[in-house]
Design a binder for these strands. Structure first.
Lengths: 218, 218
DNA sequence: ATTATCTATAGATCTATAGATAATGC
DNA sequence: ATTATCTATAGATCTATAGATAATGC
């Protein structure tokens, strides 16, 4: 009775991490007790301590394994080359769809909520620094815009301002449509806002019409 | 000894609310105990219960008295008339400064953090609904843009897209510069980002140069 | 008399540990 | 022998209440 027969379909450690993320995201870190986690996983509290030394270690692991995320991976590729290949407008659409698909996953929504709620704690623990993260993405996109402008793929704009104009509405859209875990996201409305943003953004950066008066094709 | 002499300079109820906002903002609602609050105020736990029936009532009161905020008051005036009077570009600057000054106050920063952290709890308690709040501001600004376009004060743009372009970077700037309570805001960098955003936004909505080829003064 | 505090404490809940025990893998 | 669980519990902390008492205001 002390140890149940092995059920191959389950992995307690994995379950602890998954249930914990869920609980932390919905009730906060301090709002979720080891008892709550144990109940959600279906074991006793003491079993949790076999896998993790304490509650903090669970949080650390949950966030550690989520790492910088798929988004950062995307940002590390040679974006300029890709954009050159597929054309900036097409790239915007493709990237927009990819980002939304990622952000709309349950896991990303939970992570976002956890980070919104616990960012001071996470920063203090050296686990995640929202501001730094944003600034780094901002710098990265800024470089891309600079290079795109050099190559004439977009018009000559202040890259800093363009990045604010690009990222700001993305954040807003994410907050509006995906931050409330108690509401099933309205994906149609989300995509609508997203393409409204991307189209409108494109108009502000697309190369000027050639001085000859001949418009290039939209 | 049971009741100290009155000190006219203090108001326990007020102190409870102020310290609580501070604690809730820095450690979260569940992360702040009645004991913590009592210690911060300088009374015993039981004294708190003389002023509020329970911890939840403190949260409710803190948020209730912060109400919809000065921002909403601003949004209810006849904006179009004001903009018409002072000119859209000047209005943008004035409003930008006013918003930043408000957002940078300690109280607003604490409220923002509290709302970021506790939004599910606040929504469930019927105290504050971030998404609804944002959508309502969004709708309001959308109307203003529509009217401004009708009057020719800005160019004919999709008002929905313009609102996203306007509000998005504002939110981003707020998150970058004001969301971390452990960092003294760099007001210079903040104003810099803000004016970069407002200038850049203005370029995307200012009336087109007259077809005559005469540029109006910037 | 009323108000605002105090001391003291009940009872719930929380984190964490000790030690027992059954299943697993060599 | 090791691993993963269990039962049981210590000790800290939390919310909330009861009842005493001093200050305040009529």
């Amino acid at each position: 009775m002390a140890r149940p027969k092995k059920d191959d379909t389950r992995d307690t450690r994995r379950d602890i991490l998954d249930r914990s993320l869920e609980l932390f995201a919905t009730h906060g870190f301090t709002g979720s007790s080891m008892r709550d986690i144990a109940r959600a996983v279906g074991v006793r509290e003491s079993a949790l301590y076999h896998h993790f030394p304490n509650k903090n270690a669970i949080l650390t692991t949950v966030l550690g394994e989520s790492g910088p995320g798929a988004l950062n991976a995307m940002m590390t590729g040679d974006l300029v080359r890709i954009i050159e290949a597929m054309g900036p407008q097409q790239f915007l659409r493709t990237m927009g769809e990819a980002v939304v698909a990622l952000w709309a996953t349950e896991r990303e929504r939970h992570l976002m909520r956890l980070i919104m709620a616990e960012s001071p704690r996470l920063k203090q623990a050296g686990l995640f620094d929202v501001q730094k993260q944003i600034q780094s993405v901002r710098a990265r996109i800024g470089e891309v815009f600079t290079k795109l402008a050099e190559r004439g793929l977009i018009r000559q704009v202040d890259p800093d301002a363009a990045v604010l104009r690009f990222m700001g509405p993305m954040l807003l859209i994410r907050v509006i449509h995906l931050a409330d875990l108690n509401v099933t996201p309205d994906m149609a409305a989300l995509r609508d806002d997203l393409s409204r943003h991307l189209d409108s953004f494109w108009l502000t950066v697309r190369p000027e019409a050639p001085p000859s008066g001949r418009r290039r094709r939209a």
